[in-house]
């Protein structure tokens, strides 16, 4: 079998790669563990495996992992009539384990490399906290892909808009690391302003703010919405994301302060100019929120500059 696991990260679409980096082993692993002790007999372990429909069982005591017994070990003992042997004598002791905070991509490549059916998962204190099988990965990747698809579909559907009593409202959805669609909201907002005959200087200020807020959601948040409201006198943008929140709001307003990762930086973002830029161009600016989401409200007076 040269290709037992089809999920390589070499030529997968960038969304998939991102998904595999974003998801951690702890998101995917099975936490309800069936374990044996070193003194368990192979017969007992086979019983546990049969009753729980599993094909391998870690041998651990008090969180400490000693080895693993797989179906192969059971079959070998059956053939040798050694089902009364203890786990300590028969288990694989050199176990390849994973750490719970590793990205899924790493777990996948480890599985590719070692071709075992299951990998015990340890936390940073070296305690056994779960077990990971290729089935766990497939199931959770499918769930995650379903969510991504649902988001994608909802962002493709016509956005709710209304234009009652001279007030125009548009709502846009952003998704984490979706650089593909990033900037669309801002481009549309700028077009609306230009079509309305709003001066290019003000249109640009609004566009700068909406672009920075949009990119902030794409680069740093779990996704969110950008609501744009245009009246005769003002344009208002409310950016609301789904978390995880900015740890240090005050610092985030200082130019050059950034928490962006290397990948985001390599695309030319994450220079720590987003919020300072936004604040600078806005007539009114406020930011609030916590771990469940950050909310930025900016507004612009449209009357300051006569249309040109």
């Amino acid at each position: 079998m040269s290709n037992s696991f089809i999920l390589g990260t070499d030529n997968a679409p960038s969304h998939m790669i991102e998904l595999m980096y974003r998801m951690k082993v702890w998101d995917v692993m099975t936490r309800e563990l069936r374990v044996g002790s070193r003194t368990s007999t192979l017969a007992e372990l086979q019983g546990i495996m049969r009753d729980n429909n599993i094909s391998g069982i870690p041998i651990a005591e008090g969180g400490r992992l000693y080895g693993i017994i797989s179906m192969d070990d059971i079959i070998r003992c059956l053939q040798q009539g050694a089902m009364g042997d203890s786990a300590a004598d028969r288990m694989t002791k050199n176990v390849i384990s994973l750490e719970d905070d590793m990205p899924l991509s790493f777990a996948i490549s480890t599985m590719e490399k070692h071709r075992f059916g299951r990998f015990p998962v340890l936390n940073k204190h070296g305690e056994l906290v779960g077990i990971l099988t290729s089935r766990d990965i497939l199931v959770h990747l499918l769930i995650a892909m379903n969510k991504e698809m649902a988001l994608l579909e909802s962002s493709l559907n016509p956005q709710p808009t209304s234009e009652a009593g001279g007030v125009l409202i548009r709502e846009y959805t952003t998704r984490k690391f979706d650089f593909e669609n990033a900037g669309k909201a801002s481009t549309e907002i700028k077009k609306i302003l230009v079509d309305r005959g709003i001066g290019s200087k003000i249109a640009r200020k609004v566009a700068v703010a909406s672009y920075e807020l949009e990119m902030n959601q794409v680069c740093h948040s779990l996704g969110g919405t950008l609501s744009f409201k245009l009246t005769e006198e003002t344009a208002e943008i409310v950016a609301q994301d789904l978390g995880p929140g900015i740890e240090d709001l005050e610092s985030a307003l200082i130019e050059g302060w950034s928490t962006a990762n290397e990948w985001v930086r390599s695309l030319g973002f994450g220079a720590g100019m987003g919020l300072p830029n936004t604040k600078r161009v806005s007539d009114e600016f406020s930011i609030s929120g916590g771990p469940s989401g950050t909310r930025v409200v900016t507004s612009f007076r449209l009357r300051a500059e006569p249309s040109v």
């Binding site: 593909e180 900037g183 801002s186 700028k190 290019s200 700068v208 695309l267 030319g268 220079a271 830029n277």
Partner: peptide, 29 residues
């Protein structure tokens, strides 16, 4: 791109090595 977003003038040529779609958004805006 944030630097360009803040400082590029209308009517300019935007010189960069950022060859991707987001650069076009910045140029447009």
């Amino acid at each position: 791109l944030s630097d360009a977003m803040a400082n590029a003038q209308e009517g300019c040529a935007f010189l960069t090595i950022q060859a991707h779609k987001n650069t076009v958004a910045v140029a447009t805006l």
